[in-house]
Design a protein around this nucleic acid. Structure first.
Lengths: 374, 374
DNA sequence: ACTCAGGATTTGAACGATCAAACTTTTGAA
DNA sequence: TTCAAAAGTTTGATCGTTCAAATCCTGAGT
């Protein structure tokens, strides 16, 4: 056989008509069991699969969701989108939906891309990431009636409980609060926070989580609260420098929670460099680097985020687009609770008793090394 | 207008026939300029774009390439696939090709997925990553005549210059050699190598690069060469422990090149912990973490890899699949030369003179800190 | 035996584009 | 002026599927 088998080939092989084969595939219930079996055998024998483009043309839907792969390799947590993408692809696959990628340098270019993909009937719906305050994309999409869901809640004007669009987000408040409470439960009595300047809604949300935990469990004065609250850009050096300063100005600090793993790593370096490598630190994002270095972190459970996104777009089970108005009231968004991952930190400065290194042949050999480089 | 405009709508608006509109889009040359202009206006006015599925059905090709998004978040260099994906998507977009994602837990599952995508005529060709010795996927693909290209050369049996399939790869030898030579040029006279156990062809390739540089430029004895050559698994701790041992056993080492940024980071930590935080170290992959921490590294220039992959599959310019046999002799693969990125390393242990930290309001304030924590 | 409802199956049309061939107009040379 | 070739445009068929309507079959009720 030169070309791929068509529904007609199957029909011929099973001695039935096109439509019966189609029915076996789409509405098996209405086909007589006997006939159905015969068709199924033919399908298997020919290794037939319906031609996706033909089906899409007829059905007037593409069963495809597009997502922008943005160039932001924003430092350490960059792999976040990567992991989300993976989760999304898996969930989508289970529903018979495909994930298409596109790129765009800026929001305007992204809108243009979306317009093209829509106009070519290439894509049914979109997933937007990294939304921000006053995002032109969401406005445009709403206006042009394009189905979409955002990863990230609308921080701006409209009411979170009745927004203009579907969204999924991670509950940064709950996550950061859990992290802080964990430290307090482990004996910390003075827990600081390293976050971002308060432009980002995400950062503020996480900050409030820390604040809630401290106010709830510790008797930290308002002045102290302000002193324990750092705001720096999401860069290793900035975090390191700020934390060095903080630790030197306040010896009693015995715990830190951070709005990202980047900041947490900076904090670890800072702690080590001022001889506090025992300081418990918790980050956010559960990035690969964090994992490699034994950093405890708040994991975003991207599987659930992805599942939530698809459920909002397509409904609980099927692969069909839910009409916007049908997705009623409180089901129009999902707030996912992240969970804390506790790890044994890798001491940056004091490699104690190298735990069975796997150096082989040409390695010089392993030996104990208990030297405290403090 | 309820539905999207079709070619017929445009034809009506421009007072021509379907086919003429089609010609304006696909073979503008054969349309009389006057008519063409009229059609183009109509196209713009209606914001018409050809229906992708209809076109694909008729043309019997999907203009889509699929790639597996695998779950490997392998530590620090994990973002590599992410970056490759981005480059690939951009290059593909320029050719009017779309990138589709899929997942699979293991090679067998991946083959099954590929089979499905092919049978559904969803995808024209595949890009395979993380190929390994005796990979069942490449065998299957070759046997079943599925067009594909691998990122990673075939290390196994068949001749590299006449392999059974198309491939693109990064020249690890050249990259590692350049790195080592750079260190030597900067004054290093005893340069070690941290790599992986010699199962991986990639690792050996990089090792040979270091070896070539050292033999070429330095008079290191064979015994020394063996002693300077570490092999550990791609884990931070393992690298750290092995490098600590190495540095303690040989004081004269004044440079290290590593087969990955993960290993390099481990080496940096090791160097710092034995008071050698000045030791120049170069990694491989140019990962985001490396960037964040100021690690010099060999960058894989994934743009070129992506371009190469597409050129092999689709030819220099167009979007059409090149017939396998047409891609003659030496154009059946690409070996991309990576380039070295030199950075000012962030001292892990001695944050000297915090360079204008951007801590704001609630930060305690910045101050000089020259303490050497040796 | 005859009708009718209902289920099971088949047939013709449509989705929106391109290809191949037919048709119409223009061009240029005799 | 005439005609053939070239250029420009249109028409009918097709890609592989599903929808809508038509047809065929089966068995129950009169």
């Amino acid at each position: 056989m030169d070309r791929l088998p068509t529904i007609e080939d199957v029909a011929r092989a099973a001695q039935v008509s096109r439509q019966t084969v189609s029915n076996v595939l789409n509405t098996p219930a209405i086909v007589k069991p006997e006939t159905r079996k015969r068709v199924e055998v033919a399908i298997r024998k020919l290794a037939y699969r319906p031609h996706a483009s033909a089906r899409r043309l007829r059905m007037r839907k593409s069963s495809t969701i597009a997502i922008r792969l943005d160039p932001m390799t924003n430092g350490i947590s960059g792999a976040l989108l990567d992991r989300f993408l993976h989760a999304l692809t898996e969930q989508a696959d289970a529903r018979g939906i495909r994930i298409l990628l596109f790129t765009a340098a800026d929001p305007a270019a992204e809108i243009e891309q979306i317009r093209k993909l829509r106009a070519g009937a290439d894509v049914d719906a979109f997933v937007l990431t990294a939304t921000f305050h006053g995002d032109p994309r969401t406005e445009w999409l709403v206006e042009n009636d394009v189905p979409f869901v955002t990863f990230g809640r609308p921080w701006g004007a409209n009411d979170m409980n009745n927004p203009k669009h579907l969204w999924v987000d991670v509950d940064g408040f709950a996550g950061m609060r859990e992290a802080a409470i964990h430290l307090i439960d482990q004996g910390s009595s003075r827990v600081g926070f390293v976050g971002w300047p308060s432009l980002s809604g995400t950062g503020d949300d996480r900050r409030r989580g820390w604040q809630a935990a401290v106010e709830e469990r510790l008797s930290t004065s308002d002045d102290d609260l302000a002193a324990l609250n750092l705001s720096v850009e999401d860069r290793l050096e900035d975090a390191r420098d700020a934390v060095v300063a903080l630790l030197e100005s306040d010896e009693r600090i015995d715990g830190l929670v951070c709005a990202s793993d980047t900041l947490a790593l900076g904090a670890m370096i800072a702690a080590a460099s001022v001889g506090r490598s025992d300081l418990p630190i918790i980050g956010f994002d559960n990035s690969p680097v964090g994992q490699a270095i034994g950093l405890s972190s708040v994991d975003q459970t991207l599987d659930e985020v992805a599942r939530g996104a698809l459920e909002l777009l397509l409904g609980e089970t099927g692969g069909d687009l839910v009409h916007r108005d049908a997705a009623a009231g409180d089901t129009r968004h999902r707030l996912i609770t992240p969970h804390l991952v506790i790890r044994q930190p890798l001491r940056l400065l004091a490699p104690d008793a190298a735990s069975t290194p796997t150096a082989t042949k040409s390695a010089v050999g392993n030996h104990k090394n208990g030297k405290e480089t403090q």
